[in-house]
């Protein structure tokens, strides 16, 4: 069974909606369910298998697709995503390669939002203006830049805004009430809540703490709230998604890729299917999260 949200709709060559992210959350609201946001690094474990996974994600149940731009020094990431970046970098995955992959994906898929996630240096080096222009052209919808807090964001955001791309900001358990308005005031698309004070893929978020944190965030923003970091199983995804608009799963998906890569770096046969099967279990968990 296909878990595609808009079954039966011919996705080909329809004019792109003004904001795929807003449309997606509106649709999720209509269907009365939380969304699944999946993360994988571009070209992990290699460009071909990555393209297969990417292509299969919408029907496996990913409501929003995050694609990591790999970086040599991912200081906010845990071992899983560090290793994933390293695998991706072996294939010379620069910004240009990431945008090319998105462009290819968009040839057949124009409904599912794509958000790029990474660190600022590769984007800065590419050029903020060129990046915004080329990302919009490739069919990217939003960007998360882990080490670009609102205080430093304007030099990139000015160009993203000009191309109708969302700059999605992170909020954390450490973000104070005094600080939140400044963050969400700049945010667009959705607000990403980092559920643990830590790096990706390590500690597991506590459901009650997340519920409280999301309630606190709702006082400051009407944007949808996605919660990530530390969600590893369909059960956890379901528990967390009960309290927010979308749950983000990264390291756990990336771990399935890691397990399917042989010692010489080549992927086992059928790896993309294994990854997509796991995404389906996450999607099923999330679909039952709301009463």
């Amino acid at each position: 069974m296909s878990l595609n949200l808009v079954e039966g709709v011919a996705a080909k060559k329809m004019p792109a909606p003004i904001s795929r992210i807003a449309e997606r959350f509106a649709l999720l609201k209509k269907y009365k369910r939380a969304g699944l946001v999946t993360f994988i690094s571009a070209n992990d474990p290699n460009p071909d298998v990555f393209a297969e996974i990417l292509e299969g994600l919408p029907s496996a149940g990913a409501d929003i697709i995050e694609i990591g731009i790999p970086f040599t020094d991912p200081a906010a990431d845990g071992p899983s995503i560090q290793a994933s970046s390293q695998r991706a970098l072996k294939h010379k995955t620069d910004v240009k390669a990431v945008l090319k992959a998105v462009e290819k994906f968009r040839e057949d898929e124009i409904e599912t939002p794509v958000v790029l996630m990474g660190y600022y240096n590769p984007i800065y080096r590419y050029g903020p203006q060129e990046f915004a222009e080329h990302a919009a052209k490739a069919g990217v919808d939003g960007v998360i830049v882990v080490d670009l807090p609102p205080e430093e964001a304007e030099e990139l955001d000015v160009h993203l805004r000009a191309h109708n791309l969302h700059l999605i900001f992170l909020t954390a358990p450490t973000s104070s009430d005094a600080r939140l308005p400044a963050i969400v005031g700049r945010a667009s698309g959705f607000v990403y809540y980092v559920s643990i004070a830590g790096i990706t893929g390590t500690a597991t978020a506590d459901e009650h703490a997340v519920a409280k944190a999301v309630a606190r965030l709702r006082k400051h923003t009407r944007l949808p709230i996605a919660v990530g970091f530390g969600i590893k199983t369909p059960e956890q995804a379901k528990a967390i998604a009960a309290h927010c608009d979308a749950a983000v799963v990264g390291s756990a998906i990336v771990d399935v890729i890691a397990k399917g890569v042989k010692a010489d770096g080549t992927p086992e046969a059928g790896l993309s299917n294994k990854v997509l099967e796991f995404v389906k279990t996450l999607a099923t968990g999330i679909r039952n999260a709301w009463p």
């Binding site: 906010a76 807090p149 900001f169 954390a172 973000s175 980092v194 004070a197």
Partner: peptide
């Protein structure tokens, strides 16, 4: 200050 939000505060 180019750091993740968790560290900013």
């Amino acid at each position: 200050r180019y750091v993740a939000e968790t560290l900013m505060p």
